[in-house]
Nucleic acid binder design. Sequence first.
DNA 1: GTCTATAAATCGATAGAC
DNA 2: GTCTATCGATTTATAGAC
Lengths: 218, 218
Amino acid sequence: MGIAERKERQRAELREQILAAARRIVTEEGFDALTMRKIADAIEYSAATIYLYFENREAIGLQLCHESFEHLVSYMAPAVQVADPLGRLLAIGRSYARFGIENPAEYRLLFMTHSSFLEALFAAEREHPDPDDPGERAFQFVVDAVRVAGASGKLATDDPELIAEMLWSGVHGVVSLAITCKAALVSSVEDLAETMCRTLVRGISASGDVTLGSRSTS
Amino acid sequence: MGIAERKERQRAELREQILAAARRIVTEEGFDALTMRKIADAIEYSAATIYLYFENREAIGLQLCHESFEHLVSYMAPAVQVADPLGRLLAIGRSYARFGIENPAEYRLLFMTHSSFLEALFAAEREHPDPDDPGERAFQFVVDAVRVAGASGKLATDDPELIAEMLWSGVHGVVSLAITCKAALVSSVEDLAETMCRTLVRGISASGDVTLGSRSTS
DNA sequence: GTCTATAAATCGATAGAC
DNA sequence: GTCTATCGATTTATAGAC
């Protein structure tokens, strides 16, 4: 069966080449600039060949989203090492912001693109719930951390989903505003993100005064 | 000179018709869907005629932005009637969110479109600073309210621009997330916006505990 | 001032030869 | 498995007739 295996391996390789080229284009020029022709030029195949590996342009975008969610999770995962519940929430917010700041093109693809992708991802998730799905893991990660904080009695209110989504919204606001209209901001994105994370955690904590770790605690 | 005046009037009227049609298309289908042909069909002129009134598609978009900033200011302006500094910040946040929720297409055009517009607006503002510019007024409005709160000694920290931009980012995050990926949110936009405004104001207030008006105080 | 007609450039996707 | 060739539909913007 050596021949069949080689063929399968070569097929997988070309598929990876297509994804790598697509990712580079999206990173450099944004998703709107991703065309089948550009991918074809990059991998030195004809555009028609790509359709033998992906159903269409959308399918390539979805695969890129999955990989970027993995990337995002890799940023946030270390935050579980922070024992203090509020400190962990702070660490999650900081790492999420850092992902967006350091990977603006990926961030834009995941959270700022016209509904289609996220909606497609959520629709797919509802059809076949998969706890291993990177996107699902990313969301659950934040909700779990809020639950832990709630159970420790350190939160002023008790609605994990609402608080998780508010925290997400706050950091998302900083990152997306910085991406969309950096020229409008006087403050640096880093200062803005840090201030946002600290203010939100302070705002949800049961005691008005919280001891927040140093900024480098990310 | 009656003839010249009638011509001028008719010219201004057609210009308004073009803008009205453009705004309707943007509102219903988004800015990406705005094409010269669609405008032409709507006003029952040929597409070529539009170029006699606007340099290009971008110029139409810029004019729509100016008008939408006016619209946004009209939402926020009543907040000055709230005497309490923190209450006023809360009212501004609520009214900003309400603008975004009630006018998603305008909001998307102003703050979620590919940098070009806001950057062009800010570039123009830097060239010819104009305190009457609607966009400038909207931003100054928030900064002023933060300054008032700071002067009253009710804020924990003292950096008006940073705090203003953080408040802006927070509410922007809620609105933009709701627009981009509503399917991802369990909570309602209204609850999310209200929680965000209250949490942020609580988080920046000098005393950890703040008396916040009822939700209907918008 | 307004039109028709069209240039010039894209794009996604497919049919069919090899 | 890959290619060439092309369809069919877009778009912005302009040239030139009326």
